[in-house]
Amino acid sequence: MSYEHLNSFERKAIYYRHNSGESYRSIGRLLNRHHTTIMREVKRNKPPYYTYFDESAEDLAVERKKKPRHAKKFSNKTLYQHVVHKLQEGWSPDAIAGRLKKNHPNDKGKCVSHETIYQWVIKDYQVGGELYKALPKRHKKRKKQRKYGDLRGKIKNRVSIHERPDIVEKRSRIGDWEGDLVEGKKGSGYIVTHVD
């Protein structure tokens, strides 16, 4: 099940129930959330020396969403300098991210994704830096990745299987072909099937 952020209605319920002394577990059951989610919400958004307040918690959550994840990692200067050093040694962002994950499997503060590294390179370029020159292919900007879903329905002059003649369903003649192409894991090859 994918995680969904708390909404303003849930924060309002937490405000009333937490401040009336209700437990995190009880609030979690009411909202169909894990009790640690409620506890983190209160600890993260409760101002010092004051009680939890839903409106200020909502404002803080909105501000956090505006700040991209790569910017949060960027503030970790040791991690950033390590990444820059590895780029200058000729490592690719994928290799750097993979090695960090392997060396620090349980410490997210010492790990970074390849996407974040690319965002750092782009950010550096935007302020006049030349970190992009350390990339293996040296692109100032990344090409937009094409997703496989974007390729569907792009065959020129194709005819949908739903528009084929009724006689094809009878399978009484030769020459009515159906074809399919499946790509395996990158670099492993393709499988083509043709059925008459």
Score class of each variant (00 low, 15 high):
Tyr16Val: 08
Tyr16Asp: 08
Arg17Glu: 15
His18Asn: 12
Ser20Glu: 15
Ser23Pro: 10
Ser23Cys: 08
Tyr24Gly: 02
Arg25Met: 14
Arg25Ser: 15
Arg25Asp: 14
Arg29Gly: 05
Leu30Asn: 07
Asn32His: 08
Asn32Glu: 14
Arg33Asp: 11
Thr36Trp: 10
Thr37Gln: 10
Thr37Pro: 11
Thr37Met: 09
Ile38Tyr: 01
Ile38Ala: 00
Arg44Ser: 05
Asn45Gly: 03
Lys46Cys: 09
Pro47Asn: 02
Pro48Glu: 05
Pro48Asp: 05
Tyr49Cys: 08
Tyr49Pro: 00
Tyr49His: 07
Tyr50Glu: 14
Tyr50His: 10
Tyr52Met: 06
Phe53Cys: 13
Glu55His: 04
Glu55Gln: 12
Ala57Ser: 04
Glu58Thr: 15
Glu58Phe: 07
Glu58Leu: 12
Asp59Gly: 13
Leu60Lys: 01
Leu60Met: 02
Ala61Asp: 07
Val62Tyr: 06
Val62Trp: 04
Arg64Ser: 07
Lys65Ser: 09
Lys65Trp: 01
Lys67His: 03
Pro68Cys: 05
Ala71Tyr: 00
Ala71Arg: 07
Ala71Leu: 11
Ala71Ile: 13
Lys72His: 12
Lys73Ile: 05
Ser75Gln: 13
Ser75Met: 11
Asn76Ile: 08
Lys77Tyr: 06
Lys77Met: 10
Thr78Gln: 08
Thr78Leu: 08
Leu79Asp: 02
Leu79Ala: 00
Tyr80Pro: 09
Gln81Cys: 06
Val83His: 02
Lys86Phe: 00
Leu87Ser: 01
Leu87Ile: 06
Leu87His: 02
Gln88Asp: 09
Glu89Phe: 03
Gly90Phe: 03
Trp91Asn: 00
Trp91His: 02
Ser92Asn: 00
Asp94Val: 04
Ala95Ser: 05
Ala97Phe: 00
Gly98Met: 01
Gly98Leu: 02
Leu100Thr: 02
Lys102Gln: 04
Asn103Arg: 02
Pro105Leu: 01
Asn106His: 09
Asn106Thr: 13
Lys108Ala: 15
Cys111Leu: 05
Cys111Gly: 05
Ser113Pro: 02
Glu115Asp: 14
Thr116Tyr: 01
Ile117Asn: 01
Tyr118Arg: 06
Trp120Cys: 06
Trp120Asn: 04
Trp120Leu: 07
Val121Gly: 00
Lys123Ser: 14
Asp124Ser: 03
Tyr125Cys: 03
Val127Met: 12
Gly128Tyr: 04
Gly129Arg: 03
Glu130Val: 12
Glu130Ile: 12
Leu131Arg: 01
Leu131Ser: 06
Leu131Tyr: 00
Lys133Tyr: 08
Ala134Tyr: 06
Ala134Thr: 11
Lys137Asn: 09
Lys137Met: 07
His139Ser: 13
His139Asp: 11
His139Trp: 03
Lys140His: 10
Lys141Val: 13
Lys141Met: 12
Arg142Asp: 05
Lys144Pro: 10
Tyr148Thr: 02
Leu151Val: 10
Arg152Ile: 11
Arg152Glu: 09
Lys154Leu: 14
Ile155Val: 15
Lys156Pro: 11
Asn157Ser: 10
Arg158Glu: 15
Arg158Cys: 15
Ser160Glu: 14
Ser160Arg: 08
